[in-house]
Design a protein around this nucleic acid. Sequence first.
DNA 1: TAACCTGTTCACTTTTTGGTAACCATGGAT
DNA 2: ATCCATGGTTACCAAAAAGTGAACAGGTTA
Lengths: 119, 119
Amino acid sequence: MDYDRFKYCGLNVALDVLSGKWKPVILFHLFHEEEVRFTELWRNIPKVAKKVLLEQLKQMEEDGVIIREERNTFPPEVYYRISEKGKALGPALAALQNWATEHAAEEVAAMRAAKKVAL
Amino acid sequence: MDYDRFKYCGLNVALDVLSGKWKPVILFHLFHEEEVRFTELWRNIPKVAKKVLLEQLKQMEEDGVIIREERNTFPPEVYYRISEKGKALGPALAALQNWATEHAAEEVAAMRAAKKVAL
DNA sequence: TAACCTGTTCACTTTTTGGTAACCATGGAT
DNA sequence: ATCCATGGTTACCAAAAAGTGAACAGGTTA
């Protein structure tokens, strides 16, 4: 195991992209749904404030992990989807997920119980 | 690619463990040094407040990713090292690091330039 | 005795993040 | 005219995270 690659600078960049209360959930939806309309997303993630959801989406767009597409209809329709860069996060996210279920099962259960994130 | 495993609950647990301004750096040191004394760590991470470093270490200990060993000497010596659970984070961290260098090279460079994290 | 080192904690302050609720422009439906 | 839905912004507020500086107990050293 060659862990010399932990030039944690890159690690920090990656964590920066992921850090934000709702970003994991957003990614979850976007990984599953290919294309999600804003209001739809907003309704599927109960408890987020519109403003906050917008903020996180904007950050993620700036980070290049998602793509925002505005369609010229009325009422306006705005769709979000993952970019290639975003999809490339897949393995890393899976690895984290893996670690959690293998080494932190209790915490996962506790979190579920506390409903820190609802689905 | 089976991304059905993104039961983002686990993902959130993992990110929780990693989120904290100094945790990546701490991990970096602990992955490389086997055993680090508190003051030593504090001096190697310039700019952290002692209090904050202590906080992050305590959280990481509670999360079970590091181990705190207090030796009965005077003046007191406290050593930190990674636990097995912490070591198990290795692949996930490497994956994140990988993603950053492959898909976010510019951001990494920018961060280095901004000295958001110093080594 | 006084100054010192260590890991910790305390009392605050600042910064960052997240949340609430109102508002806007637009056009379609009632 | 009125109301609704959409995506977005604004002004304001609350909570969390990080930072500052001092203090502590304890024995060591000078």
